[in-house]
Design a protein around this nucleic acid. Structure first.
Lengths: 214, 214, 214, 214
DNA sequence: GATGAATGAGGCTTCATTCAT
DNA sequence: CATGAATGAAGCCTCATTCAT
């Protein structure tokens, strides 16, 4: 009785149960997709029975929302804070943001959520809107502020920010998508580090040979 | 009987059946995903009965595979010819490739195939591999050759081609994904023209302010 | 193939299936109650599978409504016609209506519907309203017209019709209730014939001994 | 400890528990029916937890039986005393009985018991029998004795008592049923006073116009 | 070939009941 | 005694698949 691991499972619930369920749901949703995942499997993976899920989440869709809310939003806040408090060069900031995002999100199961949303948005427009408003648009705004900062500091040239942010976000999202689609099938996995370095290099310098005088 | 146009209408109809079914299935699979699409809806959209589907496709999974196979093949080769025969400046070539791709693929139903594959790759790994080998990797190779051409002609600087191609392809794929996910939900649709111009501008020049002395 | 009874079950559907399902549902709803009746049992009694029910009725509640609609409404129309076309004495008409109602409704499974509605109205207010509007109030109006007719012809004394109709309808409804509650439990079954004769006698003459000078 | 009012409040509470549970259950059973009432709601209405119910009642069915048993007994005997001690006119006695019944039973929660029994008799035949023997048949006997008294005193004409009692009881029972079915749904609530006056008038005089020469 | 009625396995959800604290 | 988290059987409903015509 002294060791918590001796406690019967049901006793640990108030603290951990919802988190265990969310973790199990995240895994399975990412692995199989929302529509195909059976709640019974989520429960089984969390080590509880089917009915227990309904003590914590009203239905499958609410479970999905909770998974998104609990996992993605905290990370976003951190990144936003980083931009606003960063002191140095915008180039370094860009590099930090990109690599940090990969470390905190892309390289974790969380990246699967993005894939999930893009894949299943057709069936859950409400969820898609929720995710867009809470995650995508905030992410875009973050990159937009970063570009603005660089322009104001004279580090970046005059840029059309509106569309450019989406273009810049795209390769990061694609890297996450890749990991959970082709990557998950063992098809030509990409080296994130090399990919992201190429990405950063491209964003900074473009492809042109400036010495020739393009 | 040799010329299809001599056949009575219902007989031509009969031969067109599978194509009509595939088209209907493509639409619905793209819009809703594989698991959620009901065969009855596919049949209804094609104007036939549910049972008729099974005259042409053994089951739902085979229908999916046929949809992908039938729609992937026509895409191949379209753009490849373009690149090798082009004479002018690599910058113009890049611009033509990107905008031409959008016009001939991205802006057609075929872009839905890409979304479909990325979304359902987990459940159909062999299709994902097929799509990767026949489409994605050939697209990458195309961009790779384009970059190589630019470098050889001194128009592009020395570039690490392997990963860069994937980075450059990413925003194009994302544009297609967007069209079929958030775009389909009426959530902040992107203007492809503006997006692609920003993309081309970024790829060529990067974001740095060269005059400052980068 | 000549004899319809040799036909496979599924072939007879377009004509008879919905009626078979409604009959089975009526029996079980009356026997067990709406909430407790399982659709699988309804299907089984009709000799079909669970899914077949949903080809004809959207859900359990719609099935219930259809049972009421198909069974009760036609009988009501007949009774209404009888009142309007009857030529003779109002006393005879009253007797005919009461005994006819018993024959056509009370003595059949249909009487169970009334019990059902009264018992389960709490859970299905929408159904209760439907039944009240379509059946109860029409039945009351029918009796009301009968009383009015008798008064106008001088056969009945001046009566307060509004509440009296409900009072007169009550013993008829109770007889149906009884049959499906205590009667169904083998508890002191009532002889409908004697009960209705007492009822008619009471309605006509009351209990008072007029000779004494009431 | 002998006087309950000396006990601390929570201890009196403890003894009152079963009554509070039964009251809550009565309300909900009457309102929604047995099958549909959730024990959790019963517990909530009584202000206890679901588990507590099982400290007092073995299961849902036993709770139902207890509800009925506890509520039936107090009804008995209330009215019986009235009839045998009455001195005056049988007409006045009838009026007093009917109006008194409504006041003391029909207009209280106890009328719900009647509705409950009639509605659920199919699933609880032994309770139905109990209720019939202890309540219904005693009520009938009471009315029977009343009629007999009137006949013997020459106030009522010669009547067939056996069935007539049931006919006379019917509108009273129906008034209770109505209150808990259509009445509870806000569908055309009946004015008990007017209804009962019409009822009494009908029972005494019938509908015929005696002056015409009945 | 084409139909569409029929099937029945399977998923989501509810809730009576249990039981460790 | 009281709690309320946990269980799991059971019901409603969906839909891929079959098959007699």
């Amino acid at each position: 009785m002294l060791c918590p691991f001796n406690k019967p499972r049901w006793e640990r619930r108030k603290e951990a149960r919802p988190q265990e369920l969310l973790a199990a749901a995240l895994d399975l949703f990412v692995e199989r997709g929302f529509a195909v995942t059976r709640l019974e499997d989520v429960a089984k993976r969390a080590g509880v029975s089917k009915g227990t899920l309904y003590l914590y989440f009203a239905n499958k869709e609410e479970l999905f929302k909770a998974v998104v809310r609990e996992n993605i939003l905290p990370v976003l806040g951190e990144a936003e804070a980083m931009i606003d408090s960063f002191e140095g060069n915008s180039i370094d900031l860009f590099r930090d943001i990109v690599l940090g995002w990969w470390e905190r999100v892309g390289d974790t199961t969380l990246s699967g959520i993005t894939k999930l949303i893009l894949a299943e948005s057709g069936n859950f427009p409400e969820l898609a809107k929720f995710y867009h408003d809470e995650v995508i648009s905030r992410g875009n705004a973050m990159i937009g502020r970063l570009l603005q900062r660089g322009i104001e500091r004279g580090e970046f040239r005059q840029l059309e920010i509106q569309n450019l942010t989406k273009v810049i976000v795209a390769p990061i999202i694609m890297l996450m998508m890749w990991k959970h689609s082709f990557g998950a099938c063992q098809i030509e996995p990409i080296s994130p580090k090399d990919y992201l370095n190429s990405f950063i290099d491209l964003c900074l310098h473009g492809v042109l040979n400036d010495e020739v005088g393009a």
